[in-house]
């Protein structure tokens, strides 16, 4: 343990209201501590700069999975284990379930939360690409009230989010129309080893076909830019096209402009770009399979 523990504080508010009041009392001073699977790693390494936290793990208001005709709504504290064991999720949102099953190992899946994965804002996180493709929305709450925003565009720059210092993510909502039978879905995490890997590239894509043509496509990628990216231009040039060599080439040309992979200690820009293009091709070919 490289952190100086006496310098840290951890509170346990009795309710969501109390938590929000604490947040509002000094915006930016207190931060939520959910499953702790990101925070504890930083603490252990002596790299957790923020010092004051409050636990939200016990706040039932932030838990649970609800289904309506239009939406599936997940509490921010939904764990990867809960996600994967939900029947509807498995049927309609398989990419998110695969992402969950490939996140960490069982201990992490029992403890890590979807809200934490989003708010940790790592460009290498594995659920965000799937969330973007599914057109997810976030509910942000504060003592001032609650609001829904689209998840796409939530991450504005490395570790920057459209969330005020007094806000929390309370729920994540997935429109059921964005998935389902007429959508073909493709998710692939590339991490060199099969489990317990941080993504070198994470690809999520979905497309709806009609008459042998792509009616609509959505693509999002992780680990290829300072934030998870939504490849909107790549997706939009696919509209109305058939899958063939030209389409693949055109889409790859767009993708090159939309992602900005880098060299780091896990991989190279070159590899990330090449594999991204390969996965795009494979995604498009999979629409025909």
């Amino acid at each position: 343990m490289r952190a100086y523990l006496p310098a840290y504080e951890l509170q346990r508010p009795a309710s969501l209201d109390e938590a929000l009041r604490l947040l509002a009392s000094a915006p930016g001073e207190w931060r939520p501590f959910a499953g702790g699977t990101d925070l504890m790693v930083l603490l252990e390494a002596g790299k957790l700069e923020h010092r004051k936290f409050f636990s939200i793990w016990h706040l039932d208001e932030l838990r649970g999975i609800e289904e309506t005709i239009e939406h599936i709504t997940l509490g921010a504290l939904t764990t990867y284990t809960e996600l994967q064991s939900n029947e509807t999720m498995r049927r309609e949102f398989p990419m998110l379930c695969v992402a969950a099953s490939e996140t960490g190992a069982i201990a992490i899946q029992n403890r890590g939360t979807l809200g934490g994965n989003i708010a940790n804002a790592s460009p290498a996180a594995d659920s965000p690409p799937a969330l973007i493709v599914y057109g997810a929305e976030l509910e942000l709450v504060s003592a001032r009230g609650a609001r829904w925003i689209a998840y796409e565009g939530f991450h504005t720059a490395y570790k920057q989010m459209r969330m005020e210092p007094d806000e929390l993510i309370s729920r994540i909502r997935l429109p059921r129309a964005s998935a389902g039978d007429n959508w073909k879905q493709y998710y692939r995490k590339v991490g060199t080893r099969k489990a317990q890997a941080i993504s070198k590239i994470c690809f999520a894509g979905a497309a709806r076909l009609g008459d042998g043509q792509i009616e609509e496509a959505r693509i999002s990628m992780g680990s290829v830019a300072p934030t998870v990216v939504s490849c909107t231009k790549t997706a939009s040039i696919l509209r109305g096209r058939r899958v063939n060599k030209e389409t693949i080439g055109a889409a790859q040309g767009e993708m090159k402009k939309e992602i900005v992979p880098i060299d780091d200690l896990r991989s190279t820009a070159d590899y990330r770009l090449q594999v991204s293009l390969n996965l795009l091709e494979d995604f498009l070919l999979s629409l025909e399979r």
Binding site: V41, A45, T192, R193, K194, A195, Q196, A197, I198, L265, R266
Partner: peptide, 27 residues
């Protein structure tokens, strides 16, 4: 196939199990 010590200036910079990857049972 997995274990790559990344050196920079004579130091191992991936000195964590997150980034120095060894195969898991799944591999």
């Amino acid at each position: 196939l997995f274990e790559n010590v990344v050196w920079r200036g004579g130091r191992m910079i991936n000195n964590q199990m997150t980034n120095y990857i060894i195969p898991t049972t799944a591999d």
